[in-house]
Design a protein around this nucleic acid. Structure first.
Ligand SMILES: [Mn+2]
Ligand SMILES: [Mn+2]
Ligand SMILES: [Zn+2]
Ligand SMILES: [Zn+2]
Lengths: 156, 156
DNA sequence: TAGATCTTGATTTCGATTCTCACTTTTGAT
DNA sequence: ATCAAAAGTGAGAATCGAAATCAAGATCTA
């Protein structure tokens, strides 16, 4: 019974992290930040700012887009969100995952699949070590077509 | 005696590819295109447009930067250059290599090392296959510090 | 050499993101 | 509750890399 994807506990944890960060830094909590944070944590992941703003404005149409930019930067700073750039010229955000993962991106429909492969991770570090490189982060993205888009392509 | 890095033969091949492409498409060859292409093929690799333009203008200060953008797009189209994006907000270009490679990027000094690892490549395709994904391209970048920058860091 | 076609370079436009600033909200102290 | 200091907001301007526009120039072919 462990996977009904009820992430409300996780959401609470993340909001708590933000609360502490705001307190530490002498920042202020605002209705805008609360709304944006909630919307972000509940929404589908890998959201662009435009998508997030649209979602947020359903609840409060007066939110300015600068505020969404600023809030996402804040969430990234305090470590509950991660920025992603999949080469379409728009930064996307996802809630920071428990463990690292990489991405398969369908260039047909934009679908994004996540994967984790310990063997690849190990080999990356091996390659870096051989070159005296100290890896801080990495980016592995596979671009291609998902099954549905492969079928669509054949029909053409 | 196989590695004096005299790539003039390679350069000629690439220029020949461009010549054919220009002919096929009914384009015209111009002094600007020749100069930009030569400069690009001779320069250090992973050049940003700004860097390339600077180099080009040493020979001909009247070259406009739109021409450099257009020419690099052309070289990419005809398959003698590849675009790279290492997350610093500037597209970089390198002459298309004989075989695929990935990159280690030093976030300290900007140095870029290239590597090839057949094992990683294989695993990537395995991961994709398991998910019914047809990979068209991929991007693997390791960000971190080169040895020199690690030393500099310690001194701080 | 003419003339159709393509190319150029200066400039404008674009789209994503950041900045600016007058006005508002939060917060902690009275 | 009231106040003042500090931080946050939203609208619009500024920025930056890249792409589009367009009048003037170069190329190529018949
Ligand atoms: Mn993800
Ligand atoms: Mn390279
Ligand atoms: Zn798809
Ligand atoms: Zn370095």
């Amino acid at each position: 019974m462990a996977s009904l994807k009820d992430n409300s506990a996780e959401r609470q944890e993340k909001k708590e992290i933000l609360r502490r960060y705001i307190e530490e830094k002498g920042l202020k909590s605002t209705v805008q930040r609360d709304l944006i944070t909630d919307t972000f944590l509940k929404a589908k992941t890998h959201l662009s700012l435009e998508e997030l703003l649209r979602e947020v404005r359903k609840k409060n149409p007066r939110i300015g887009y600068a505020t969404v930019y600023r809030t996402m930067k804040l969430l990234t700073e305090c470590g509950i969100a991660v920025e992603r750039n999949f080469g379409d010229g728009q930064t996307r955000y996802e809630p920071i995952p428990e463990s690292h993962h990489d991405h398969l991106i369908c260039t047909g429909c934009g679908k994004i699949l996540e994967f984790e492969d310990e063997r690849i991770e190990r080999l990356q570090y091996e390659v870096a070590r051989e070159r005296n490189f100290k890896v801080k982060s990495h980016k592995l993205e596979l671009y291609g077509l998902c099954l549905e888009c492969q079928k669509k392509e054949k029909r053409t």
